[in-house]
Design a protein around this nucleic acid. Structure first.
Length: 286
DNA sequence: ATGTCCTCACACTGAGGA
């Protein structure tokens, strides 16, 4: 099962890139962020094209800003829009949508940016993350995936220059602690566990040729419960989607999960063809 | 380089957000 997350920075502006990417990568479950569309507009623009590709859709949008979605072709049930009990700015924003897909409880999140550390939006970001943590804990982390744009670089390895972000949000200890608290409920940072010492950036500013010079950040994460993370077969950042004409400023993150949730791939005792044959000479242990 | 892109409105140019 292929699970992906992508901040598309306007689904409308990304329509050709998004549909082409779905055809090329064929993900089974997709978490989208910053669709910047109302539910009606998303349905109007993407409904037929997604249905044609076999996707069910849960979109939670508000129009001009934010907007998240889940696309799934392995089932989409028990949809919850938003983060129950989340703070607003001042009103609740379209930053989370959850559904059960392929046996997993999947949440697509667009964490508040924070803007600057002395902006009220920063306190809002931390409070929002606390509510997300509570929601994960109240559920069943062992069957959970939380994926999306966290607007947090978990460690110094996740930014191209510590100096460049010295006075910025995304790297402050309180933000990193809020992320760590979410992971402490039992979630694993799937990309970081696969690529232990590779930066694996997912976002590059449009300005100044940042992508070309790899001046980026790893702020788009896939967090998964232990049994889910143990099914990891591949985990990578789809940099191709950041290239070419009209890209988002974020690249998708793609995770492939093995299909055997309990790791049971057959009998523990080897079949006769692989074991000691009856009547054949036994080889002595070295 | 505060250098780009996306959206919307006191709209065909500029401001806000990222």
């Amino acid at each position: 099962m292929r699970v992906a997350t992508w901040n598309v920075n306007s689904a409308k502006a990304r329509e050709p890139r998004l549909l082409g990417w779905l055809d090329e990568r064929a993900p089974d479950v997709v978490c989208l962020q910053e669709t910047k569309l109302s539910d009606e507009a998303f349905e109007e623009t993407f409904g037929p094209a997604l249905a044609e590709r076999g996707y069910e859709v849960a979109h939670h949008g508000e129009g001009r800003w934010n907007g998240v979605a889940l696309l799934s072709r392995v089932g989409l049930e028990e949809v919850v829009e938003g983060l129950p009990g989340a703070p607003g700015y001042p009103h609740q924003e379209a930053r989370a949508v959850t559904a059960t897909c392929g046996g997993l409880r999947v949440t697509s999140v667009y964490v508040p940016n924070g803007r600057t550390v002395d902006d009220p939006h920063y306190a809002y970001k931390l409070e929002w993350l606390g509510v997300l943590r509570d929601m994960v804990e109240a559920g069943d982390p062992s069957s959970t995936i939380v994926a999306g744009d966290f607007n947090i670089a978990p460690a110094d390895l996740d930014v191209y220059s510590v100096e460049a972000y010295a006075e910025s949000t995304h790297v402050t200890p309180p933000e990193r602690e809020a992320l760590a608290a979410i992971e402490k409920t039992g979630l694993h940072d799937v990309i970081r566990e696969r690529w232990v010492d590779v930066p694996a950036f997912t976002y590059w500013d449009y300005r100044g040729g940042a992508f070309h010079q790899d001046r980026g950040m790893r702020i788009d994460l896939v967090l998964a419960g232990t049994p889910v993370a143990e099914r990891r077969q591949a985990a990578w950042v789809d940099r191709q989607a950041r290239k070419g004409t009209g890209p988002s400023d974020h690249a998708p993150v793609i995770v492939d999960l093995d299909e055997a949730p309990d790791g049971d791939i057959g009998p523990v005792v080897p079949p006769p063809s692989l074991g000691a044959k009856k009547g054949a000479p036994r080889r002595k242990k070295a």
